[in-house]
């Protein structure tokens, strides 16, 4: 008998069983991802052609073949751009306040807590709020801009959190060196802290954009539906790509389902591209990569 007692069979079996379960759990988590991506690519390619990308649904009946998502793509791009224009400055400024100015005060703790809570606001509630405030209370009709407002509410907390994390990573030495040279605090933030954290902030912003680009529920209540091209996000109903997929998927015939899959493929390409670019920027500037 050796000096060290061998592990009993029962304990060894239990260890192995748990290991098997853990591997199984991971496999179970990846199966839906592969299944979703596979079906979207396989079914989406049937209608993913030039006509789909350059035509709208104007004059196309429910059962007709053809038609496209050009109006929806335009709508999504404009709405997401407008949402970013609103949410990014507010988000980044809030992060600056949390990191640089309100260190540990009651206001900053309150804001920090509610930013966390805000990440949990359901997207449909954000849409309902803009509907209740913008469309019912102020009496402004449905428009792409109303959708952008709803999306910006969903973007803000994500932008704040990622920007805050990046600003905290900026070494204090940099700030102090700047102060020692007589640079005022606000110029230190603008000229030293923000440029240092910029790539990280851009990554966070792009991930936030990717998240809201796929949101359907808030658009449903704020931009309404249209089958025609509307390039003006401030006037009249627009379409959004996720809304287009939802609209087509709810129609019970095959040509519409094909259009829904092609729309889903377009949407997933946009979202995944944004994700990939964001991760690449993060990887390119990561400190572990020797430069």
């Amino acid at each position: 008998m050796s000096a060290i007692q061998r592990i009993s069979t029962g304990r060894r079996i239990k260890d192995r069983v748990v290991q098997g379960l853990v591997y199984l759990a991971f496999a179970l988590a990846v199966v839906p991802l592969i299944s979703v991506l596979w079906l979207v690519i396989q079914n989406g390619l049937a209608r993913f052609d030039l006509e789909f990308l350059t035509h709208s649904m104007r004059g196309i009946g429910a059962r007709d073949a053809g038609g496209g998502a050009y109006h929806a793509i335009i709508g999504t791009l404009e709405q997401v751009l407008l949402a970013s224009v609103i949410a990014v400055p507010i988000g980044v400024l809030t992060a600056i306040y949390l990191v640089e100015y309100g260190t540990g005060g009651r206001l900053s703790r309150t804001i920090s807590f509610f930013v966390d809570v805000m990440t949990g606001v359901p997207s449909i509630v954000a849409g309902l709020f803009i509907f209740a405030f913008w469309i019912l209370f102020l009496g402004i009709p449905f428009s792409g801009f109303a959708g952008a407002l709803a999306l910006s509410i969903l973007m803000m907390p994500t932008v704040v959190r990622s920007a805050e994390e990046m600003l905290r990573l900026v070494p204090n030495d940099l700030r102090e060196a700047s102060y020692a040279l007589g640079v005022p605090k606000w110029r230190t933030i603008l000229k030293v802290v923000l440029p240092t954290a910029l790539t990280g902030i851009i990554t966070g912003v792009m991930l936030a954009i990717a998240r809201v680009a796929g949101e359907t529920a808030p658009l449903l209540l704020t931009v309404f539906f249209t089958d025609s091209i509307n390039n003006d996000p401030f006037n009249g109903p627009q379409m959004g790509l996720p809304l287009y997929v939802f609209d087509q998927a709810a129609r019970p015939n095959d040509t519409a389902i094909d259009r829904a899959w092609a729309g889903a493929l377009t949407l997933i390409l946009i979202v995944m591209l944004l994700n990939l670019v964001a991760r690449l920027i993060a990887w390119w500037r990561s400190p572990s990569r020797a430069r």
Binding site: F26, A29, V30, P32, L33, S35, V36, L39, V40, N43, A210, R211, A213, G214, E215, T216, A217, P242, V245, F246, A249, I257, A260, W261, A264, L267, I268, V271, M272, N275
Partner: peptide, 20 residues
């Protein structure tokens, strides 16, 4: 890879659920 699951828009999960 697991984080990518979160990147798939919810309408696509709906479509996948409905059709598959």
């Amino acid at each position: 890879l697991v984080d990518l699951l979160a990147a798939v828009p919810s309408v696509i999960y709906g479509l996948w659920g409905l059709v598959f």
